[in-house]
Amino acid sequence: MIEYSLTHLKQLEAESIHIFREVVAEFERPVMLYSVGKDSSVMLRLAQKAFHPGKMPFPLLHVDTGYKFKQMYEFRDELVKELGLELLVHKHKRSGEMNPFDFGTQKCCAVLKTEALLTSLREGEYDAAFGGARREEEKSRAKERVYSFRDGFGQWDPKNQRPELWSLYNAKVNKGETIRAFPISNWTELDVWQYIYMENIPIVPMYFAEEREVVIRDGQIILLEDGKTLPGEELRKEVCRFRSLGCHYCTGAVRSNARTVPEIIEEMMTVRVSERATRVIDHDTEGSMELKKREGYF
């Protein structure tokens, strides 16, 4: 007897491919936001699958704060070259000037991420942008739609979301309004890792543990890309890795010995601290992700 069933990952994969194709079929100028992280890597593979044997019919857009880790830039440029992808990099015009020390993390994020993202989408006249957000990541994301409607200012109105039933997504927008499409909405962190493992998807080496020179800042393990310590801080060596990648000032590492994908998964199953806990910016105020999303952030 032939079994017509799919594993959960194959079901998720099929759903994600469906979403990619649906957006490309219904929008005029889609773009994929690419953050170099593991979720972006999985999205990239899914996009390749969706349009195989053709090429992805949209460019990648990296909204670059200028504060990403060196290894991220290297990985990104290498990958783009190898796969022959079209990559657009957008930096806010004040990216050298803004920083979390003088302006605080909230303002820094608002300008370098949110504002930069909105400007780049507007300038590129993109009517749909793929993002790698997952509902499992954070409380306010749990209520996000697959097609997340944004008004002319890129804002998300959580009280006025379009109902989303079955896999029938509403692609109607007026000029200036956009849709953020989240093909991996239903994936969990474990799903992402398992898929990276199964599919042998390349990821930034910073996810793997090694000895790194760091400081402890506000309880977080911070890797200094510019070598500048603050008063009272001391450089130390820690075997650590990154569970989530962001700006180097605001992304902490975790102590870990996981040097391979299976080891990462093993660690995940035993250490239970949710993945965004090492992102300083989410903890500014109670409900801060929701605030950022309302203003246009992912």
């Binding site: 959960h8 509902r135 499992e136 409380k139 306010s140 994301r141 749990a142 209520k143 959580p158 009280k159 979301q161 909405s185 239903n186 969990t188 474990l190 799903d191 409900g287 929701e290």
Partner: peptide, 28 residues
Amino acid sequence: LTDGLKAEREQGITIDVAYRYFSTPKRK
């Protein structure tokens, strides 16, 4: 843990669909 949006926490009611994930060794 499950009522995500600020308005809901303030009003103490769940007003929207929230998606939650968990798995056991058998199923996701």
